[in-house]
């Protein structure tokens, strides 16, 4: 950190002015980044009439949760008018198994590729890694044919498979890079102590993998929860994940445009990942930087 307190700026007034300017600029930027969130929240708490009369930045005169209730319980997704809640559960049912399976496989892969290296381990890793960079458009058509053949098209199971398969490269990358920095001597010591592949993994490696497990889970959860492309391509009607439902609600052309409901639905969709971000931001950033070359 270049430290203004010790390095630089001449003392006194000029310094104070510069600091003031600095904070002003930062606050303006904060407003820019917070503005959409503010608009989402206030709009979702207003009634439609109030939205038409007021402006984006006016606070709700009467706070009402009607829009939230409507979005959750009654909003129409396609022909189904029972709110976004069923799709919320679709997303949960899709994300939880996919996150767990891909994280476990990633941990095992990373461990095997670093601590029990075999000939060609590097090539195997490089080939797995390639999957992180492929634009998913290139697998869409074969995947929809394959899911159809497997009989899991338009199902949550199908989406779990898709997310596991294309999440694997990231989780493997995370764990592999984490395990590379764990000294091999630990495994050697345990080998001499008589422990085998799975004993070492279970008793020695896994207990010290806490941070990277969190990173992997958060990354995978965010990716899978926020995914739209796979959800839109491989699901339809009642099996769709929440992002697809949200887009559907927002882009429904029939009836009166209910901006407050749109915003409530958007907030509901964004809430789980926002919550994760607020609670475990440190790990979220770590995941981003570790798997940064992604889409």
């Amino acid at each position: 950190m270049a430290d203004l307190q010790t390095y630089g700026q001449d003392s006194g007034l000029k310094h104070t002015l510069l600091r003031g300017l600095l904070y002003l600029v930062l606050i303006l930027f904060s407003i820019y980044y917070l503005f959409p969130l503010f608009v989402m929240v206030t709009t979702s708490l207003k009634s439609l009439t109030e939205i038409r009369e007021g402006t984006l930045i006016s606070l709700p005169r009467v706070v009402t949760f009607d829009a939230w209730n409507y979005a959750w319980n009654e909003a129409c997704v396609g022909v189904e008018c029972s709110g976004i809640k069923t799709f919320f559960w679709n997303s949960v049912q899709m994300a939880v198994p996919a996150v767990l399976i891909s994280t476990i496989l990633g941990a095992l892969n990373g461990y095997a590729l670093t601590k029990f290296r075999f000939k060609g381990a590097n090539i195997v890793f490089a080939m797995l890694l390639f999957g992180c960079f492929v634009p998913f458009q290139v697998v869409l058509l074969p995947m929809s044919v394959t899911l159809g053949k497997l009989g899991i098209a338009n199902s949550t199971t199908g989406l779990v498979l898709v997310h596991v398969v294309y999440g694997l490269c990231f989780t493997t990358l995370f764990f592999r890079n984490y395990y590379v920095s764990i000294p091999d001597e630990l495994v050697k010591a345990a080998t001499i102590d008589g422990a085998g592949f799975f004993t070492i993994f279970w008793r020695i490696i896994l207990p010290i993998s806490g941070p990277i497990i969190v990173v992997s889970i958060i990354w995978q959860f965010t990716q899978i929860w926020n995914d739209f492309l796979f959800g839109a391509s491989f699901s339809s009607g009642g099996s769709a994940p929440m992002t697809v439902a949200l887009n559907n609600i927002v882009n429904t052309t029939t009836g009166v445009k209910q901006y407050n409901v749109d915003m409530a639905a958007a907030l509901l969709t964004g809430l789980p990942t926002l919550l994760v971000y607020v609670l475990a931001g440190k790990y979220f950033v770590r995941g981003l930087t570790a798997g940064s070359v992604k889409g």
Partner: peptide
Amino acid sequence: PKDRNIAMVFQSYALY
């Protein structure tokens, strides 16, 4: 290794 009846002390100690 586990059947050789040897024990080893490592440079980094390799404590679990």
